[in-house]
């Protein structure tokens, strides 16, 4: 299978600390790759390297065979990689709908004069965007709160809104950073359902998650990081029985 996104020997250093080193991962469409590992293993740093917020020190990132290493976050987003954040980063002063519509930004033609005079095309685009945003909100189950400010949404809804916003950028690859963090079992169940439906849309998903139940349920592949290094990869079954993983999670003595 041809991978949509893959990296080769990706590395990032902060001062002397090797946050991430020689990571090789690949993910194809309709696939879910989960990245697990103890806190401080470098999972979020890896996401930041993939989405362009950090510039990797070594190695390359390839998207559909094109080397995208060192591109700016917005350029990577334009190519079709969208992400959510571990600590929710919505636009708190804007409505849920506006948050989603901001995701459509790069697909809009920006002609200030067309906006000033509300040309035919512009109005059509705006209407289409509005409908598409409502549809996305409906998809993640937020249609009732479309006009509520993002700040006033409940925690679980904010997580969903972040996913809707990322989807609005019409990505091919979606990077989800702990989407089920801090959720109770039933909310986590809903999140699993949502991620499954996302896969149905033909997306490649990379997921960072601590909820083992969620991870084992939905992943096609799992990659385990510890101290910035890959210590195991494979299907959920393989990873579950890997002695190194058990050691990393439970301590060396086991």
């Amino acid at each position: 299978m041809n991978p949509l996104l893959h990296t080769s020997k990706l590395g990032k250093t902060f001062g002397g600390l090797k946050a991430v080193q020689s990571i090789d991962l690949s993910v194809a469409s309709n696939q879910i790759l989960s990245i697990i590992g103890p806190n401080g293993a470098g999972k979020t740093t890896l996401f930041n390297c993939l989405s362009g917020i950090y510039k990797p020190d070594d190695g390359d990132v390839f998207f559909e065979g094109i080397n995208i290493t060192g591109l700016k976050p917005y350029q990577i987003c334009h190519l079709g990689i969208a992400r959510t954040f571990q600590n929710i980063r919505l636009f708190p002063g804007l409505s849920a709908l506006d948050n989603v519509m901001i995701g459509q930004f790069h697909r809009r033609r920006l002609h200030p004069l067309a906006m000033l005079f509300r040309s035919e095309n512009y109005r059509n685009e705006e209407a289409v965007g509005y409908e598409a945003a409502l549809e996305l909100l409906d998809f993640v189950g937020l249609s009732e709160v479309a006009h509520t400010g993002a700040r006033n949404l409940a925690y679980g809804l904010q997580r969903r809104l972040e996913i809707a916003r990322a989807l609005a950028t019409s990505p091919r690859v979606l990077l989800l950073d702990e989407p089920a963090a801090g959720m109770n079992p039933s909310e986590a169940e809903h999140m699993v359902d949502l991620i499954q439906r996302l896969r149905g849309r033909g997306l490649a998903i990379i997921l960072i998650e601590h909820h083992m139940k969620v991870v084992m349920q939905i992943s096609d592949h799992i990659m385990v990081l510890d101290h910035g290094e890959t210590i195991a990869t494979g299907t959920p079954e393989e990873v579950r029985n890997d002695p190194k993983v058990i050691a990393a999670y439970l301590g060396k003595e086991s």
Binding site: S51, G52, I53, K72, P73, Y74, C77, H78, A82, R83, F85, R89, L90, F91, P92, G93, L94, D98, M101, I102, G103, Q104, F105, H106, R108, L110, P112, M115, L116, R118, Y122, E126, G129, R165, A166, T169
Partner: peptide
């Protein structure tokens, strides 16, 4: 003119930058 710009995608992008610059950048706003 300012009212119309404010309600347009450009205005939304401006507000997004004000609210959270990193997130705006990741959402495809230059």
């Amino acid at each position: 003119a300012i009212r119309r710009l404010y309600l347009s995608p450009i205005g939304r992008a401006w507000v997004a930058i004000r609210e959270d610059e990193v997130a705006a950048n990741s959402m495809g706003i230059d």
